[in-house]
Design a protein around this nucleic acid. Structure first.
Lengths: 202, 202
DNA sequence: CGTCTAATCAATCAGATGATTGAATCGTAC
DNA sequence: GTACGATTCAATCATCTGATTGATTAGACG
């Protein structure tokens, strides 16, 4: 357990994480991080010689925090549902995580080593979804005419756009979410003013 | 035409826009903006008393630049196709615009007035897509069992996640794009092991 | 020419910011 | 209790950064 080994170090990372979530990189100051922990700036530099080192600490923490949510067990359909539910809960209880991830994603555009980390997590996420989709499809729980690879890419992109760049009311977030589930086949189409006609395109 | 009225002012905004795209808010310095135009800092402050004023200028420029791409004429299906094609081209020729939009979207989380602007553009985008989808649907060019409202939300979220937070290789961007078009019905399902059956939902 | 205004610049300020230094403090081993 | 390594702090540095000041230039107008 690396947690209790260096409490001060972890506290500094946690404080930086919080500030990064609320103020972004634009407003991340070493002094403020130290103050939040109630520690002298020199102490911060004792553990993290350079600001960049502290940032790497936050990156590791945030990415690990997110990767935790990727795990799961049970049927593929169940895991899929659990994954969606988990994200919904996460966005409600811990929106800071998405704020931090967004900051990191953007910074990754200018920082090759960070881009590698963020991209890796992204790829892992997409790979997990692809596998889950394929398995759920084999279980017969999903639309059969669905490309798992492409759909996984769309899901990841949609969730990133929804949770990491939420420029609108929560109602739109929920609508996006539901539509995504419908597209995958996890949700029955419940159109109230539904068209009962169904044109055939072919 | 507000463009040629104040060339220096526009040049400053353009320079700030460029720096914002490459360095983000984290690396936006008034001195650098002034230097890029070849002008004294005091001159910058003559036109933009505060840094925030300059930023507002960039916001207006970027948002206007993006809203331009939302226009269109012709059949709904044609407009939809044109819209997707336009975004593809834009992401290839002018990725800075998406970088700036991402910066603004994130900053909007902490700045109410900015959030209003970004959210407004977002809403307009979604509304346009919804209308287009509905019309294309009436034209019979799209899957009939598709909720325009929900699908518009998903499309916007996906495109934001894809272009504004591109943490992966371009190949994934293209895959996401194609899958999105397939979902809407703009692209024939070219699955080699294709299913010819078409399920009825009701 | 003289005056007024818009535009521009060199020089500078005040505060912020990442980082360093040298001196405590504290617990542990001898 | 002395010595030593690990922590922590007060004080300070060097630089950066947004902003201001006062002077200068250029053009318009009479």
């Amino acid at each position: 357990m690396p947690t209790e080994a260096e409490p001060r170090k972890d506290a500094l990372v946690a404080a930086a994480y919080k500030i990064l979530a609320t103020r972004g990189f634009e407003g991340l100051r070493t002094r403020e991080v130290a103050a939040a922990v109630g520690v002298n700036i020199a102490t911060l530099h004792y553990y993290f010689p350079h600001k960049e080192d502290l940032i790497r600490g936050v990156v590791g923490y945030a990415m690990g925090r997110f990767r935790e949510t990727l795990s799961g067990a049970g049927s593929a359909e169940g895991q899929l549902r659990a994954h969606f539910r988990g994200l919904r809960v996460l966005s409600r209880d811990e929106p800071e995580l998405f704020a931090v991830m967004a900051e990191l994603a953007i910074r990754g555009m200018r920082d090759a080593s960070l881009r590698k980390i963020v991209g890796g997590t992204d790829d892992a996420w997409r790979a997990m979804l692809r596998t889950l989709l394929r398995r759920a499809q084999d279980e017969g729980a999903l639309r059969p005419n669905l490309d798992p690879e492409g759909m996984a890419a769309v899901i990841v992109a949609t969730l990133k756009g929804t949770f990491m760049l939420p420029a609108t009311e929560p109602e739109n977030v929920e609508r996006t979410f539901r539509q995504l589930e419908t597209l995958v086949g996890l949700r029955v189409k419940r159109s109230p003013a539904a068209r009962t006609r169904v044109e055939r395109s072919s």
